[in-house]
């Protein structure tokens, strides 16, 4: 229950960060994908099912606020969460490389699928320019933001485990 509320607060925090605060700190027109960082952190630390549920609600929140058809973002986040959840088997609390690589790859997958769904299908073929001007800056900026966000979420996760008595110091 506590975990549910904490995850919900994390989700809303990420949403606000991504849509409001970071729009003042945009670099080359992109903002970091904080919700994706949250989704991948959950996938890496807790596995596929919680990650997919988090992904579902994150995507729904984005879609309900910004797009007319609701659900596309949710599907994309869920695909990323499902795949990233396999890395839960490699989970080791002091490893920062694997989550970083996962976030980098996850953001690429998300943006690439988004390009295919919303741009390629409308006949916009110039993938290289989209890659250079939108996908790549977004991947880099997201990883940069993850440097601050992942340790925070991960620390919170450890704290909750300790409160639940599942691990000792």
């Amino acid at each position: 229950m506590v975990r549910l509320i904490v995850t919900l607060i994390e989700l809303i925090f990420c949403f606000l960060l991504q849509t409001s605060l970071f729009s003042f700190l945009r670099i080359s027109g992109v903002v970091p994908d904080c919700l994706l960082i949250l989704v991948i952190t959950v996938a890496y630390t807790r596995g596929q099912i919680p990650a997919m549920v988090t992904a579902f609600f994150s995507g729904m929140l984005l879609d309900l606020c910004f797009s007319e058809t609701v659900g596309f973002c949710a599907v994309l986040y869920m695909v990323v969460a499902f795949l990233a959840g396999y890395a839960n088997k490699l989970y080791y609390e002091r490893d920062y490389f694997i989550p970083g690589a996962l976030i980098f790859a996850g953001e690429f997958l998300y943006s690439f699928l988004y390009y295919i769904l919303f741009f390629l299908l409308r006949g916009r073929l110039s993938l290289p320019t989209y890659f250079i001007y939108t996908i790549l800056p977004r991947m880099l900026y997201t990883v940069l933001a993850a440097l601050a966000l992942y340790p925070a979420f991960h620390g919170l996760h450890r704290l909750l485990l300790r409160l639940e008595g599942k691990i000792d110091d």
Partner: peptide, 29 residues
């Protein structure tokens, strides 16, 4: 046992349903 893929397909069909509903009946949501 609930496998991740079951959850995935459940949520997937749920989102497909919401995509359809929001496209066809925008007033409902």
């Amino acid at each position: 046992t609930i496998l991740p893929k079951h959850v995935f397909f459940l949520l997937f069909f749920l989102t497909v349903a919401t995509i359809f509903v929001s496209y066809r009946f925008p007033n409902l949501i």
